[in-house]
Structures are given as C-alpha cells and as structure tokens.
C-alpha cells in the first residue's frame, strides 16, 4: 500500500486533532462537578465557629452585624391554630454569641445555620441590571465586584436575605461557598470550622461522596420551596416545618 506524502500529512493532522478533541472532552467530563452543601440542623450547637471562620476568611468586618453566613436560634411553642404558635428567633452574626446569654424558655429550641442558597434560578442574577451576578460551571452564583453598581435590587429580590451591601467595598456581597478555596480542592471555611459536622460539602455527581449519601438517605428540605428558586443548599431533617414552609414572621427577633 502506497501512501502519498499528502495523504500522510492529512491523516496525521486528523489523528492529532481527533486525539486533541477526545482528550479535551474527557477532561470536560472529569471536571463537571455539581457542588452542594447539606446542613444538618440537628447537629448544630450554636457555637458560631462558622460565622467567625467565614468572616476572617472572606474579610468581612467581624464586629458589624453583617455576615455571609449566620446562625438562627429558634424557640418555638406550638399552639393550635398553628399560625398562632409562639416563635422567637435569635440571630448570631458577629463574634459575640447571643445564645449564651439568652434565657431559653421551655419551648422547643434548635439552631439553623443559614447562608446563600446558591439558587439554580437565582432571583438576584435575574434582576441585576448590569450582569454583575453570574453562574459558574459548578452552578455557584458569584458577584463580579468590578461590575456591581450598588443599586441593591438583588438585596431586595433575594428571598433568603442572604445578600447584603459590603460597607467598605460599597458593592453587594454574598456567600460564594468560598469559591477561591473549593477551586483549590479545599472545603469552604465554615465547613472546615464546624466542630460537629453540621455542614457537609461535596460533589453530588460523585455517588460515593458524603453529600450524595446524606441526600439519598435523609429527609431533604430546601428553604422557601414555593419561591421556585431551586436552591443548592439543602437542609436535612429540619424538625420544624415553620422554617421550611412559611418562614412566617409571627415571632420576635431578640438581638442582645
């Protein structure tokens, strides 16, 4: 079989290109991750290490009552009719821990850590007039701090209250799942700091990861499902449906 020089050259080019494309596509499959966070309120003890770790890692003013992640302590006495139940809420978002000084009554009480829900249909991305918010390949919503004009529409639009205006940078800011850390293979700062494992972070496309197991086995909820935001932060075994279904505001906030 005789091969002309031209044929040889074409075949070589085709083979090189083909391997290149196939190599690229396999690499793409490998990189396709779907990162989620699971929060297990049962395990949260309200120590506030996640809040401090997040603030230090992301350079948020520690003593100002703003935070990318915060802990809500609830004290609920169920009454019938349900909407007249006695709900009290205490929020920890600085280094000071109000749970230690609060006098807990005899109602049911528990802690719920909260953070940006990384919605797949995020209201903040939709409403931003200048495209300062966008989704990454992992499905994480980020803020482009060089584009944000500070109109605060996203703060108004977020149903979870997870976005805020950074007082020093004068642009909006929110949790990024510590994108700078997870890109390097670390876990987010709050996950690393949690002493009880109430926050679990991982890739849901990997069936052997811890989040996959938890999501398969536990009873999974998201906050405010009626808003249709498709969050990526899941809550496992949330005891009280108050927080999930209504998040109603019949109680008082106590900030001490």
């Amino acid at each position: 079989m005789k091969i002309t020089r031209r044929e040889l050259l074409t075949r070589t080019i085709v083979i090189v290109l083909g391997t290149g494309i196939s190599f690229k596509s396999t690499r793409g499959v490998e990189e396709e991750k779907n990162l989620v966070m699971c929060i297990i309120p049962d395990k949260c003890i309200g120590c506030g290490m996640c809040v401090k770790a997040c603030k230090i890692e992301n350079k948020i003013p520690v003593e100002k009552p703003i935070s990318r992640t915060w802990i809500e302590g609830y004290e609920i006495k169920i009454k019938i009719p349900y909407s007249e139940s006695d709900v009290k809420k205490i929020v920890m978002n600085t280094s000071k821990n109000p749970f230690l000084t609060y006098k807990w009554g005899d109602g049911e009480h528990f802690f719920v850590p909260k953070l940006c829900n990384q919605c797949q249909k995020a209201p903040c991305v939709r409403v931003c007039p200048v495209n300062a918010r966008f989704y990454t390949a992992e499905g994480i919503v980020l803020v482009d701090k060089n584009s944000c004009i500070g109109c605060k529409y996203c703060v108004t639009a977020c149903p979870y209250g997870a976005t805020y205006l950074h007082p020093d940078q004068k642009v909006t800011d929110k949790c990024t799942y510590c994108y700078h850390r997870i890109k390097r293979g670390f876990s987010p700062a709050c996950v690393q700091a949690c002493p009880t494992g109430a926050r679990v972070f991982g890739d849901i496309n990997n069936p052997s990861s811890e989040v996959s197991k938890i999501l398969r086995e536990g009873s999974v909820d998201v906050l405010l499902p009626e808003e249709g935001t498709d969050p990526k932060t899941f809550y496992i075994g949330l005891e009280n449906k108050f927080i999930v279904e209504h998040s109603i505001a019949t109680g008082e906030e106590i900030n001490e």
Partner: peptide, 12 residues
C-alpha cells in the same frame, strides 16, 4: 448596610 435577616436595615 446589613442584610434583612440579621439586622434592622432596609436597602432602598
């Protein structure tokens, strides 16, 4: 400049 959740501030 706080978020709603954790402080009595309104953005607009």
């Amino acid at each position: 400049t706080q978020p709603f959740e954790s402080y009595a501030g309104v953005p607009w």
